[in-house]
Design a binder for these strands. Structure first.
Lengths: 170, 170
DNA sequence: TTGGAAAGTCAACAAGACTGACATAAAATC
DNA sequence: GATTTTATGTCAGTCTTGTTGACTTTCCAA
């Protein structure tokens, strides 16, 4: 971690000289950290026989209430058939409500029911707890760096969803 | 990102005050970044009809040549039956070699063949390229912070594998 | 020497991704 | 008004990758 050397170049630009070994460490850190990151919600979901796909749907419906199926598809990056199976179950279990669109009646507006919100809270509390603990242990400068690198690692077209906090539609 | 305030507390300890919104951003950053992180290898794997599980096996066999199935299991965190299916295919495709252990004949020592190494190179080159680009764009301090937060986010018992670079066994 | 534990294999099943085809309703366009 | 496009939903089939359960081989210790 602290063996990545930096060199000052004319001006105030600096380059990182990264060995394959340092990059491998970063790659594995990503792998192990993501496992930790999903571990707590996974445990909760398993009780109700849901999977990560349900978690993702619930998360983004919570984040953007009234979002359409198409919107959700482009954020999640899965096929409609795949999402449909998940949504169907969430709807029939009474966690998600699907209402015919007001302007465009072809669309469906999705939102969480009371029990949907309650599951979302359980899941995000668990995930936030871990994130908060990690942030606190690492300190504020580390957090800023963490966010910066993650953002650079995203695909360009996904970064769009990331930077659109309150309305999913472009 | 830069709205996380820090407060100096008696001594030189500082606390982060994190709003749910800031934590949510971190959670989504993790989600989108991980997608980017796996996107390039996924494309390569798809050509040869392999999945992420094959990638992980190839990666860790490369990292720790001669490792046993059991070792690999504890790193990957899946059941031996699940891993076995993946290994069986890699072996029959001639990417991995499995040799009966010399001391303990119950064990199998795994290593990549020449074509296994070649696939590993293709995959890790793609992944390193993205990681390197992100690191360069974010800068050295950001990278240090990134690594610090990721390490804090891992499960304790997984951190062990992370910090054991050249031999998988405890 | 025998009985249990450990390492690995085989079989069967489930979740969740995928493709492809098709249906319906509403909106947009010609 | 007729046609095409869009948004959504569904059925069927495939693939990867996770699971549990049952089994073999090997090792070790009582």
């Amino acid at each position: 971690m602290n063996d990545a050397r930096t060199v000052e170049i004319a001006g105030n630009e600096n380059l990182l000289f990264l060995t394959d070994e340092q990059l491998r460490k970063g790659i594995e850190a990503m792998f192990f950290a993501y496992r930790g990151f999903t571990a707590d919600p996974d445990k909760i979901l398993d009780d109700q026989k849901y999977g990560r796909a349900h978690h993702r749907a619930v998360h983004f419906i919570h984040r953007t209430p009234g979002t359409t199926v198409n919107n959700l598809l482009s954020v999640l990056g899965v096929t409609k058939q795949s999402l449909n199976r998940v949504l169907r179950r969430l709807i029939s279990d009474g966690l998600v409500e699907s209402k015919v669109g007001t302007q465009d009646k072809r669309e469906r507006n999705l939102q969480l029911t009371v029990s949907g919100e309650s599951l979302e809270q359980k899941l995000s509390n668990a995930q936030r707890r871990r994130m908060r603990t990690a942030y606190r242990a690492a300190g504020p400068e580390a957090v800023a760096g963490f966010r910066k690198v993650l953002e650079e690692m995203m695909d360009r077209d996904l970064r769009r969803h990331f930077n659109a906090p309150k309305e999913g539609r472009e």
